[in-house]
Computed example of a mutant assay.
Amino acid sequence: MIHGIGTDICDIRRIETVYQRQGERFVRKVLSDAEFLVWQKRSARWPQRGLRYLATRFSAKEAFSKAIGLGIRMPMTWRRCEINNLPSGAPVIVLHGELKTWFEAQGLRAHVTVTDETDYAASFVVVERD
């Protein structure tokens, strides 16, 4: 049974503007420690690739927050929601702390997809109730 659906589109140029203004402080606010390491590696090779990674994670977390019906408010926080990739490359949501506890207590399961193209990153999340 579907609990919620969330979608988000993010202008990568907007993420770049915020990053230029706030630097790593913004990145650390949005990304988990594990995501931050991936961002650093991608940014070191090609800064635009790092921005695209940041934008897809931002977008996916926004979409997830909409699908669970909380927005970005407790227990949902940017860093408690992590977007990883399976060995196949498919994105997967990994939750931490109070958000994970809340999510599991609700009997929920999430599916996510992310994409980026030139100036935009987009995400779609479906949350099911077991």
Rank of each mutant, 00 (worst) to 15 (best):
G69L: 07
K100E: 14
I72R: 03
E24A: 06
K66D: 03
P47V: 05
R52F: 00
Q106E: 09
R28I: 01
A34H: 12
W102D: 00
L70T: 07
A60L: 13
V38W: 11
V94Y: 07
E117Y: 12
G89S: 09
Q40W: 03
K100P: 03
K100N: 08
A105Q: 02
V112D: 14
E35T: 10
G97Q: 13
C81I: 12
A110T: 03
H111T: 05
T118Y: 13
W39E: 09
A121P: 14
E98S: 10
Q48T: 06
Y120D: 06
E35F: 11
E62R: 06
V30N: 05
G50L: 12
R45I: 10
S32A: 15
R25V: 13
E98L: 07
G23E: 14
L51V: 01
L86Q: 11
A122H: 15
S65W: 01
I83A: 00
R21M: 06
R25F: 01
T115P: 06
R21E: 02
W78N: 12
H96I: 11
I72H: 06
G107F: 13
N85T: 10
A110K: 02
F26R: 00
G71D: 07
S65G: 02
S123A: 12
W39N: 03
K100G: 06
E117L: 10
Q40L: 09
H96D: 04
K61Y: 05
V112L: 08
A122M: 14
S88E: 13
V94P: 02
I68G: 00
F103C: 08
R28S: 01
V27E: 03
G89N: 08
H96R: 02
L99R: 04
S65P: 00
K41A: 15
A67S: 09
D119N: 15
H111V: 07
L31K: 05
R25A: 14
R45S: 11
G69K: 04
A34G: 05
R73D: 14
I93D: 00
M74D: 04
F36S: 08
E35Y: 02
Y53I: 11
E98N: 05
D116S: 04
R45N: 04
G97D: 15
L51T: 05
I93R: 00
V27M: 08
L86E: 12
D33C: 15
R57Y: 02
S43Y: 14
R42V: 13
P75N: 10
Q22Y: 14
G71N: 15
S59N: 08
R42D: 09
D116K: 07
R80P: 04
Y120N: 04
H96W: 13
L95I: 01
G89C: 09
A63T: 10
W46H: 15
S43D: 13
D116E: 10
V112C: 07
D116H: 15
A105F: 01
V30Y: 01
R80W: 02
G50N: 15
N84Y: 09
F26A: 06
R21Y: 02
S65Y: 00
P91Q: 09
Q48Y: 07
L86S: 05
E117K: 13
E24T: 10
Y53D: 08
P91S: 03
P75W: 07
G97Y: 09
W102C: 00
V94R: 08
T77D: 06
Y53V: 11
Q22N: 14
R42A: 08
A121C: 12
D33M: 15
R80S: 09
S43C: 07
T56S: 12
H111W: 01
R52L: 04
F103R: 00
